[in-house]
Amino acid sequence: MAKLYFRYGAMNSGKSTALLQAAYNYEERGQRVLLAKPEIDTKGADKIASRLGVERTVDFLVAPEADLRALFTTHRARVRRESDSALIPDPVPSGSRPDVACLLIDEAQFLMPAQVDDLLRIAVNDGIPVIAYGIRTDFQTSAFPGSARLLEIAHSLEELKTICRCGSKALFNARLVGGRFVFDGDQVAIDELSPDRVTYESMCADCYLSESGGRLR
Rank of each mutant, 00 (worst) to 15 (best):
V62A: 06
I48K: 03
S142R: 15
I131R: 07
A108E: 00
Q21Y: 08
M11G: 08
R215H: 13
R217E: 10
I40V: 15
L157E: 14
Q31T: 01
P89Q: 06
T162A: 01
P129R: 10
V79D: 11
H75S: 03
E158G: 00
R78D: 07
T141C: 11
S96L: 14
Y26E: 11
G134Y: 06
F6Q: 04
T57L: 12
I105L: 11
R51P: 04
E55P: 06
L34W: 12
V92N: 06
S83R: 09
S85C: 04
D84V: 15
S85L: 14
V182D: 01
L4K: 13
F110Q: 01
Y24N: 01
G213L: 13
V188F: 10
K15P: 08
S142A: 15
V116H: 08
D126T: 02
Q187N: 04
C166L: 07
D118L: 03
L103M: 12
P98E: 12
D67P: 09
Y5I: 08
T199I: 09
V124T: 09
V58K: 05
A86E: 13
S194R: 14
G146S: 08
F110H: 00
E27S: 15
L176R: 14
S96C: 11
I163Q: 05
R180W: 05
K169V: 13
M112G: 00
S83T: 12
Y5P: 02
L209P: 01
S13W: 05
Y24R: 07
T199K: 14
R7G: 00
S83G: 07
L120D: 08
L4D: 09
L111I: 02
Y5G: 01
E82M: 14
I153E: 05
A123L: 11
L193Q: 15
E159N: 04
I40W: 02
Q187W: 03
